[in-house]
Each structure stands twice: as structure tokens, then as C-alpha cells.
């Protein structure tokens, strides 16, 4: 998905894909994710595909555990390319409004095409 995004908007800066290996335990995946997130205090956005999948569960747990006075990481599920492009090009910060726009971009890119086309041709 990062490759597809790069074709559209150029390489996504500071983006890392952390994939779950079939034999990887949630703990090991959590370590990989934490190391990808870094600890330099910069805001982190975690995009997961499947709500309730192991990468998503581990990411949620890390977000909950790192909640505090400092900037907490944000985790959003249901990632599609539309969302990733919004994150790559339209986000300056992780405030509530930016996250809402990100969710909206994801939802807006889900369309049953034919009814939409027929509607616009009336």
C-alpha cells in the first residue's frame, strides 16, 4: 500500500510498514511495532487494516498503555489507500479534526460504483 501511495504522491515520509508474520507472537509483534514507532517524542499515527485483527489489537494496546500527559499515539482501523493518501498529504497534526478528516477520507472512498454512476447520469 505504501508503494501504491508512492506512485500517487511520492514516497510517504516517515512511514513504516510493520507486517505480522504467521509465526509471530503478539508480544514479538508489539516489540516490532514499538521499535518502528521510535521514542523521539514525535506524534505517531498507526493505521491498521482489520478491526480486531492481531496487529490492530496490539496497536490498540500500545495506544492505551501510552496514554498520558504526553502526545499519545493514534490508531485508526479499516485503512484503505484513500485514507493513507489523506494521512500522507493532508495531515499536519493528530488533532481530533484531522483524525475525523482521515476517517471521512476512508469512508468516502468506499462506493458501490454503478448506482453512483447511474445517479449522476439522471
Amino acid at each position: 500500500m505504501l508503494g501504491s501511495a508512492a506512485m500517487i504522491c511520492g514516497p510517504v515520509a516517515d512511514a513504516v510498514a510493520v507486517d505480522l508474520q504467521p509465526e509471530q507472537s503478539p508480544e514479538a509483534y508489539g516489540d516490532a511495532l514499538r521499535s518502528a514507532m521510535g521514542d523521539d517524542g514525535r506524534p505517531v499515527l498507526i493505521l491498521t487494516d482489520l478491526l480486531g485483527g492481531t496487529p490492530h489489537n496490539v496497536a490498540s494496546l500500545i495506544c492505551l498503555e501510552s496514554r498520558g500527559p504526553a502526545l499519545s499515539p493514534v490508531c485508526v482501523s479499516g485503512t484503505n489507500l484513500g485514507m493513507l493518501l489523506e494521512a500522507a498529504t493532508g495531515m499536519e497534526s493528530l488533532d481530533v479534526d484531522s483524525i475525523a478528516r482521515l476517517e471521512a477520507a476512508g469512508r468516502a472512498s468506499i462506493v458501490n460504483v454503478m448506482p453512483r454512476l447511474e445517479q449522476s447520469n439522471v
Partner: peptide
Amino acid sequence: DDRLIHGQVV
């Protein structure tokens, strides 16, 4: 299952 609940599988 050491992943306990992971959506689709469960």
C-alpha cells in the same frame, strides 16, 4: 491461541 481473540478467526 496466544493471540486470543483475533477477529476473523474467532
